[in-house]
Design a protein around this nucleic acid. Structure first.
Lengths: 106, 106
DNA sequence: AGAACATTTGGTTATATTGCCAAGTAAGCA
DNA sequence: TGCTTACTTGGCAATATAACCAAATGTTCT
């Protein structure tokens, strides 16, 4: 792995890392259906407002979402909408794991 | 977000987390082309043998790879081969970021 | 059986992440 | 202008991750 490859994989990993948290992943998936304001996430998630804000900031830093302040509210939406694409793969990983564990119980 | 949803997103996040490291992501992508033994990774990656082994163990725990000991060597391969699918999306996130940054320089 | 090789595991330290609280900012309303 | 609402930011403590070294395991070769 040369220096350039390393930089590329660090960049890719950073994007994945941003999504690799249950709350952030859930928020990203919600955004597939359209923009949401921070208050809507705050209603749905049992965590401090500041925690939610920080999670959104991680997604923003990673280039996954963009924010848009309108009046008192801040709306977030997906910058690159293809995130939905990989969830089916993640789900098949989990499914395959569940099957392996079930096989062990036999 | 109810308790069940939370568990599902924790499981999904765990898979993403396993891939969210430059070395592990690179290894997973290498495996798209076919199985590799630990020694092959050790040749390509500038890190301790034990570090590489631990990374592979994280991928295994997450259900992304399976291992297969043959003689003295241990071969790893993808358990669920669709990982390639999401890299194009990650790449477009990065591309979009590069464009945003380029726009700022104008 | 003992040496050599390939890999894993345990232990430690450095660093990063998470989540809460408290304080700060910015917009709209009284 | 001051109050309230909607967030963001800073700071801190708890926990998780990462990398290395050293030691352990399992396999083949002599």
């Amino acid at each position: 792995m040369n220096a350039e490859t390393k930089i590329i994989y660090e960049a890719k990993a950073k994007v994945l890392k941003a999504l690799a948290h249950p709350t952030r992943l859930w928020m990203a998936e919600q955004l597939v259906e359209g923009e949401r304001c921070v208050c809507e996430f705050a209603d749905a998630i049992d965590a401090d407002f500041s925690t939610i804000s920080k999670h959104l900031s991680v997604l923003k830093q990673a280039g996954i979402v963009v924010d848009d302040k309108r009046g008192k509210q801040v709306f977030y939406r997906l910058k690159v909408p293809c995130i939905l694409n990989f969830m089916s793969c993640i789900e098949s990983v989990i499914e395959s794991q569940v099957k392996s564990q079930a096989a062990l119980l036999k």
